[in-house]
Amino acid sequence: MQEDRNHSIEIAKIKEALQADIITGNSQTGQYVTGIYASDLMSDVLAYGKSGSILITGLNSVQAAISAYMAEFKGIVFIRSKIPDQDIRKFAEEKGLFILTTDTDMYETCVKIASIEGEVSVSTAAAALTKRAENVTTYSFSIDGQDFASAGMVSTQIKTILKSIGYNPLIIRRVAISTYEAEMNVVMHAKRAKVTLKASDQEIYIIIADEGKGIADIELAMQEGYSTATEEQRAMGFGAGMGLPNIRRNSDKMNIESKVNEGTTIETMFFVK
């Protein structure tokens, strides 16, 4: 194997770099490890691992501790917040293995340990790891105008997604109501619309862009009770003129743009905190 040089890293330094919790081996933090081996496959640990190393693994089973002991490792870092059970602790204590747990994943753990000895500069490591936080999920749906039978399907789908993400029930309720109203507007007044949902840990963002007759006077349309619904639509219980006001009332931010005979785009935003 290439570059199979010896390392020499103090356990305390590893603990610090990873902001790890120490589970067993409190007295060993002044000791040094001479190698690093990252794997979840224990047969490989025995085949490739070197005496005096530290094992980085996500395999939370006593098998990991046994393999580390057999390969004469000094200790184990359990990654991704895996907390070793009583059997592992007992075994480790008996055999003098130290155990750390960290919330970082295997790559991040490796990079952070590598930066201790300056193998990777701390700033390079930090830059490589900052990008990993951003999470936005995007969904698209479509609504057909005049399809009263399926009206409400899109808001139901959006609701289901938001529920399974686990947002606060109150914010989901507001999203559901305002999306349902917007969906009804499309069904009543437009040909079709595209709905986009973007959900992140900061905000929920919904865009409903329709092709249709558009709104001539937005200010007028925003008034409660104003409605251009037909008699038939009203008879079916639609078009009470509360749609747009309801959307505004339930969202944290609302933007509406419209061109007559082209269409209307409504953007709504809901802040998670």
């Binding site: 999470n135 936005v136 997604i161 993400i165 947002y167 959900a199 840990d201 998670v272």
Partner: peptide, 9 residues
Amino acid sequence: IGTSIKRMI
């Protein structure tokens, strides 16, 4: 929520 969104993706 962040982890949850990641799982959703």
